[in-house]
Design a binder for these strands. Structure first.
Lengths: 192, 192
DNA sequence: TAGCAATTTCAGAAATTTCTGAAAAGTCGA
DNA sequence: TCGACTTTTCAGAAATTTCTGAAATTGCTA
């Protein structure tokens, strides 16, 4: 691995974290290298810096592009593909929110819907369906939340996160000023 | 695997999703079985339903307890340990928020702090530090957000998620009624 | 302390994921 | 169309993670 110490530490850490974020080590490292790079890099430059195989970098870049976490660019007079992370760090947040929804929420929501349509034969299944109903409502709430957050522009996103401990106060305020639709406590919001 | 079809489908799916959520298949399946169960189950009952080894269930339960996702109970006159998922599904949300922070945010935040303390020798390292500074601020914002959300009671949590497409409106409202601390756009909020 | 029931530990087996090298496919200018 | 350069694919190797069975440990009762 051919990197200044400070950068190397960051890249290695990001590689390890990758596995906790659903991407593999090399993909995490590639992202990290591109994130701190002063200019777009081509695949061979990444190979050089990380000391992994060319094919591994190729696959990693493909995955990062699928996640919309890196952008393909071209340098005039150079046929090779160059890659960079989007300049706006907030774009990353929006991307991650979107991908998480797609990978972690939506598939389960689809399955839960199907299971709730089925006829429960036994008593055990009936009880299970009640529980699955609760989970369905929870996931649906999350799906909506993620979808909404994704649509926020950067300023609003920053605001939302900066609210911090004031979330409580703002919710109180909202409470006073608007009427809430439907029932909320206990069983989560009722479907259909 | 000894389960009614509907439950089996759910359990298998949850096992697969587990890997996307940073837990392994069996751990996901154990959680799923407990979630739909009508009463607390002991380890052997879980072994029976899932068809995995006793030791695997033991380790899985240990991990779920570490995550605070299952609770150990005792049945009078029975020496065995019984396990159940907390009755309040919103407790799960709070738990997951907390664990995500602990596993995904905090370690990176710590590292970034350290790297920002270091003296940058080269120009490349100086540029890297600027980028790491941006990432640090982002992670700090997230850490604060997670910490705040974790503290919300169930009603507020439901409210927050139910806001849905009204997030934008509420932020506008907040904008008008309160003064915002510090700078927000462009470079994320400045440190110390 | 012995004897039994339950749980935990852990080394190695099995399964899965990641990575590589070699070959194939794509792209461009002449 | 050829040839040089670049990227992609993919079968098998390597690494990692998960799972198991056997043994050790814990805890209880007598």
């Amino acid at each position: 691995m051919q990197l200044p110490p400070l950068v190397q530490t960051f890249v290695l850490h990001f590689g390890e974290m990758g596995s906790r974020w659903g991407i593999n080590r090399t993909v995490g490292q590639i992202y990290a290298v591109l994130f701190v790079a002063e200019r777009p890099l081509n695949a061979d430059e990444i190979v050089e810096r990380l000391g992994v195989s060319r094919s591994n970098v190729s696959m990693g870049l493909k995955e990062l592009q699928a996640w919309n976490l890196v952008r393909l660019q071209h340098v005039p007079g150079d046929r090779r593909d160059y890659f960079a992370t989007p300049e706006d760090i907030w774009q990353i947040v929006r991307t991650l929110v979107e991908e998480r929804k797609k990978r972690e929420i939506d598939p389960t929501l689809t399955l839960l819907r199907e299971l709730l349509m089925q006829e429960a034969a036994t008593e055990a299944e009936q009880h299970a369906q009640v529980r699955l109903g609760e989970m369905h409502d929870l996931f649906e709430l999350f799906a909506g939340w993620y979808a909404d957050v994704r649509r926020l522009d950067t300023d609003r996103l920053v605001q939302l996160l900066t609210l911090g401990s004031k979330v409580q106060k703002v919710l109180d305020m909202k409470d006073r000023l608007t009427s809430l639709p439907g029932r909320l406590g206990g069983r989560t919001a009722k479907r259909g």
